Simulated scan of single mutants.
Amino acid sequence: MNLDRRGFLGAAALFAAPRMLFAQAATERRFVFVIQRGAADGLNTVVPYADPAYAAARGGLAIDAATALKLDGTFALHPSLAELHKLYGAGQASFFHAVASSYRDRSHFDAQNVLETGGGAPYRLKDGWMNRLLGLLPRAGKDAIAFSPAIPLAMRGALDVASYAPTSLPQANDDLMLRVEQLYAKDPQLHALWSSAVEARGMAGGMGGGMGGGMGGGANRQQPGALGRMAAGFLARPDGPRLAMIETGGWDTHSAQNARLAFQLRGLDNLIAGLREGMGAAWSQTVVLVATEFGRTVAANGTGGTDHGTGAVAMLVGGAVQGGRVVADWPGLAAASLHEGRDLKPTLALESVVAAASAETFALAPQRVASTLFPDATAARPVARLTNFV
C-alpha cells in the first residue's frame, strides 16, 4: 500500500480526539488544571444559601437549601456534586468563592485569553502560564504531551508539547503502523512527530475507547468519568507526565440553566471521580485546580438563564489538598454590594490561588512563581497552605 504525506495525515487521525494535555517533570507530584469554558455559574455551584439575598435575587434559579449538600453554615454544593462533597468531607477539596482574574469585561475570548496566558490584559502575552510553570520544573524525558488536535493556549510556549488524542476508531494494525514508520524513516521532522505519537499511544495502552455524551466542547465527546480515568492512567505512571490540562465546555448557560447546569456539574463530578479512581496511590500526590473565565449575573434573565458576570468559584481537589474549607471574603448579594449592580463582586484574585497552588505543589519559591506565571499582576492578598506538601 502506498502512503504519501496526505496518507500520513489520515493515519494520524487514528490519534484524533481532543481536549487534554500533559507535561512530564522529574517529580512525583501532579498538578491538573481543569478549565470550564463558557463561564460557569459559581452561585449555583457553591451555593451561598445563608445569604439573605440569595433566594430573592436568584428567583426560580435558586437551589433549594433542603436539597443542597451542606459544606458549612453559609455554603452548600449543588446536588449534582456528590463526589466533590465526599472529597470535601475527607479533607480533599477546598472551594474559593468570589474569585476572578484581573479581567473585568465580559467577552469569553478575551477572558479565556487572560486566564490562559496570565496576562494583565487580553493578548498581552503570547504564551501560557502552564508552559512557563513547566520551565520552572526539573524535567526528564518528554517535556509535554497534548491530548488535543490544537494545544490550548495555557500550554503553548517555548517548551515543546507533543500530542496524543484518544479515539473510538479501530486500532491501526501492525502492517499499517510499519508502513508509516518506513515511509517517514528518512524525514527528520515527520519521523520525530510519528515517533512521539507512537510513544504516547504505547503509554495509553488500552485506555483509548469509549466516546459519546461528553461535557460539551466540540469534539470532546468522551464520557467524563472515562476521560478522568484515562488522564489518571498517564499521570499515575512512574514515567508519566506531571502537569495536565483538561478542557470542559458547555458552561455558557444563557437559557434553561437549571437542567443544563445540573448536567454540566454531574459531568464535572464524574470527571473528578474518574481521576481519583484511576490515580490510585498517586492521588495522595495530586492537586487539581478547577476554574472558569468569569462568573454569571446574580439575577436570572428572561429565558431561565444567566448572563456573563464577574465573580466566580474556583476549586482545589486532590489527595494532597488541605481541604474541608470554603475560602471566601464574602461580599454579599444585596443590591448595593454587587459589582456594577449585577454581578458577584470579586474579593479574591484567581491569580493568587493559581500561583500559590502551583508553588506549593512543586515546592517552588512563591514570589518567583507568581512573577513568572502572572508578570503583569499587582500585589494581591497572598493565599497559603493550600496543600499538605511540606
Score class of each variant (00 low, 15 high):
L3M: 09
D4E: 13
A12S: 13
A16E: 15
P18S: 15
R19A: 04
Q24D: 15
L43A: 00
A56W: 05
A62W: 09
D64G: 12
F75W: 06
L77T: 05
L81R: 07
E83Y: 14
A98D: 05
N113P: 00
G135M: 03
A144R: 10
L153C: 06
L153G: 05
S168D: 10
A172W: 09
D175I: 13
L178S: 05
R179I: 15
E181D: 11
Q182M: 09
Q182H: 14
L190E: 07
A192V: 06
V198S: 07
G206L: 13
G214I: 09
G216Q: 10
Q223S: 15
G228C: 14
R229H: 12
A232L: 01
F234P: 01
P241W: 01
I246R: 02
E247F: 14
W251P: 13
A256S: 15
A256R: 13
L261F: 10
F263G: 14
G278S: 00
M279Q: 10
T286A: 15
V290M: 08
V298T: 05
N301S: 05
A314L: 13
V317M: 00
L338A: 08
A349S: 15
R368E: 06
R368S: 14
F374K: 02
A380M: 12
R381Y: 07
L386A: 01
T387Q: 06
N388L: 08
